[in-house]
Amino acid sequence: MTSAQEKRDLAYENGGFIPDAAAYGDRWPRAAAAFRAARRCDLDVSYGDHPRAAYDLFWPEGTPKGLMVFVHGGYWKARAKSDWSHFAAGGLERGYAVVLPGYPLAPEVRISEITQHIARAITAAAAQVAGPIALTGHSAGGHLVARMAMPGVLTEDVAGRIFTSVPISPVSDLRPLVDLSMNAELRLDAVEAAAESPILGLPLPHIAVTPIVGAEERPVFLDQARWLAEAWGTPQIILPGRHHFDVIDALMDPDSRMMRALLG
Rank of each mutant, 00 (worst) to 15 (best):
V71K: 02
G74A: 02
W76H: 07
A78M: 09
A78F: 09
R79K: 15
R79P: 08
K81S: 07
D83N: 01
A88H: 07
G91R: 03
R94Q: 11
V99D: 00
L100M: 06
P101A: 03
P101Y: 00
P101N: 05
P104Y: 11
P104I: 10
P107S: 13
P107C: 11
P107I: 12
E108D: 15
V109K: 11
R110H: 13
I111K: 06
I111S: 03
I111T: 12
I111A: 03
S112R: 15
E113M: 15
T115W: 11
Q116H: 14
H117D: 13
H117C: 14
R120V: 13
I122F: 01
T123M: 09
A127I: 05
Q128P: 06
A130K: 15
A130Q: 15
P132L: 13
P132Y: 04
G137L: 00
H138V: 02
S139L: 05
A140M: 08
A140S: 12
G142S: 05
G142T: 06
G142I: 06
G142D: 03
L144A: 01
L144T: 05
V145S: 01
M148G: 08
A149L: 12
M150T: 12
P151I: 14
G152L: 10
V153G: 10
T155K: 14
E156I: 12
V158E: 02
R161V: 10
T164C: 07
S165A: 15
S165W: 10
P167N: 04
S169G: 12
S172V: 10
L174V: 12
P176H: 12
P176F: 12
P176M: 14
L177I: 12
